[in-house]
């Protein structure tokens, strides 16, 4: 009974927050609703006994959405409504419906073919952090390492892009030195 209560409660909350995130034209509402939805999804993981995934969901998405907040802060006045450019409504509706149908089809396909078998059923005595570790480093080692390489590439790219003039600290320079530098840049 508790599982049912928790499932329906979190389903309602998650759908409501994502609905707000999609429909609102106010950047701050959208971001907050997105963060709330992402964090509330962890409720399902906890209900299913996948504690590790639940905690990771909270940590990863609260950090990830935060980057979006930072962008919001830089690009908009987040306390005002964003004037959206409304393209052709028919196209938007068609694409949205198609995308929704496709998602449902992908997720529902294994249910229809009755082919849901847990490949790695959880073991009662072992915590699920260990279980995820074992699966990651045996069966899914290659995707795991590929993801690691991709992250490494992204990190190096980030350093290269952001690292220009990193050895100069404006706070340590005197006013005249800063002005001299600005003048050099203009030339």
């Amino acid at each position: 009974m508790f599982e049912a209560i928790s499932f329906y409660l979190f389903s309602f909350l998650v759908i409501a927050s994502f609905w707000v995130a999609v429909t609102t034209s106010q950047a701050l509402y959208a971001l907050t609703a997105l963060a709330a939805g992402m964090i509330l999804i962890s409720g399902f993981y906890f209900t299913l006994g996948a504690d590790f995934l639940g905690a990771i969901q909270i940590i990863v998405y609260s950090g990830a959405v935060l980057a979006l907040y930072a962008f919001g802060m830089m690009f908009f006045d987040t306390t005002r409504e964003v004037k959206e450019k409304k393209p052709n409504k028919a196209i938007v509706t068609t694409l949205a419906v198609l995308a929704a149908v496709l998602t449902v089809a992908i997720v529902a396909a294994p249910i229809v073919s009755q082919n849901i078998v847990a490949l790695y059923p959880s073991v009662e005595s072992v915590g699920n952090t260990q279980q995820i570790g074992v699966v990651l480093f045996t069966k899914y080692l290659v995707p795991f390492e590929v993801a690691a390489v991709m992250l490494l590439v992204a990190m190096i790219a980030g350093i290269v892009l952001a690292g220009k003039k990193m050895d100069i600290s404006l706070t340590k320079l005197s006013e005249s030195e800063i002005e001299k530098q600005n003048a050099e840049e203009l030339v």
Partner: peptide, 17 residues
């Protein structure tokens, strides 16, 4: 819960929201 530490720091981190 068997991921107590992760949970604590995750939720405390959300506090900065």
């Amino acid at each position: 819960i068997n991921v107590g530490l992760l949970y604590i720091f995750g939720v405390m981190g959300v506090g900065l929201y």
